[in-house]
Design a protein around this nucleic acid. Structure first.
Lengths: 189, 189
DNA sequence: TTCATTTCTTAACTTAAGTCAACGAGCAAA
DNA sequence: TTTGCTCGTTGACTTAAGTTAAGAAATGAA
């Protein structure tokens, strides 16, 4: 699986022998069982994840209910929200499937950036790319009705329909499960 | 105003004489009249902005209506969404007030990063920080009702109430102006 | 000042999402 | 196999947002 991350990196930067070795040695590729909580509310962690295989769900507990806000799948990065601070997590990250991920933390990253400055350049470019995508997605969400959001979801994340339960998708779309059920019925006509 | 951006930068990195000079000489601080469109739908531009003074509104035109999705004010960065590609803009950026901003583009940034690598490190940290904030804001938006969003807005962006018209705030909250009017009446009791 | 435009509010009505409850299908554990 | 969950659907009802239209208030230009 170290191979996978190197394949990914070499799409963007030349991967030298030294970098390849540093990555292979680091042992930062980890496997998680389905159901594993990578992050829990109230716990302190600064870990970041890059999904190589599997699916991770981001959810909050609000008014005693799970509110799913994001699904991360192959080649997506999960950035630590506890940015350098020692603050407890407000959310959970749960593996929806057996998941393989590159796991890192700020110290490891800083160390790698020192040794391989081109990695920090890549991180900068990636962070900006993900950020613009995120802003665009948020704008679309704001402008769309629940029904439009679902139709949009069908085309942008079709794989997720098979991978996660529908009531979590409802939550992800900002609506109740019963409403999603009715929307589905409506658009089938 | 060059002074302002240097003051901002020196909060995060030591600003050397050379860097200060490069910034002063670049002449990348620009002033815009109220009503100026920094970016227009269909036009090609790769400009980025960092607001020093003023307010910029991001909006789309959908179904013949303006849909406001973001407001940028002092010390906020507006990242170009046309990331390195030659694609036309899908949105507008309008100055809601006379605005002073640091204006840059990818070439200028690459040039500065080459000369001052510490700037790229700072950009990486900033992009990650803005990204995590953005993800959090999006999650809160999804989980909240229109009324909760407005109450949240009152505490997080109180200045905007005085600076922009209410129907644009409605749009920003993902609702119609009439609904916001009713929500305001409701919470006043 | 006057006039026009934009902005906000209100009202009546429609539509769709939320709520509550029930039910059946599918699945897994005992 | 039985039992207990989780999950999705449906129905009846409530609530609040969308729609349409009108008018009042504020703003800005002539």
């Amino acid at each position: 699986m170290e191979n996978e991350i190197i394949k990914y990196l070499s799409r963007y930067i030349p991967v030298t022998k030294e970098l390849e070795e540093a990555i292979s040695k680091s042992g930062f590729i980890q496997c998680f069982d389905k159901g594993t909580l990578l992050v829990e509310e109230g716990k302190f962690t600064q870990k970041c994840f890059f999904i190589l295989k599997g699916c991770v769900r981001n959810y909050y507990i609000k008014d005693g209910e799970e509110k799913t806000t994001e699904f991360y799948t192959e080649e997506q990065a999960i950035i630590a929200s506890a940015n350098g601070k020692n603050i407890p997590s407000t959310y959970y990250l749960e593996c929806m499937e057996p998941t393989i991920a590159a796991v890192s933390d700020p110290e490891f990253e800083e160390d790698m950036y020192r040794k391989f400055p081109e990695l920090e350049s890549l991180s900068r470019v990636m962070a900006e790319k993900i950020l613009t995508k995120q802003i665009e997605t948020f704008a679309e969400f704001k402008m769309a009705s629940p029904e439009e959001r679902y139709l949009n979801f069908l085309t942008t994340r079709p794989d997720l329909i098979q991978r996660v339960p529908q009531h979590q998708i409802a939550s992800y779309l900002g609506i109740k499960p019963e409403s999603l059920s009715r929307i589905r019925k409506r658009i089938m006509k």
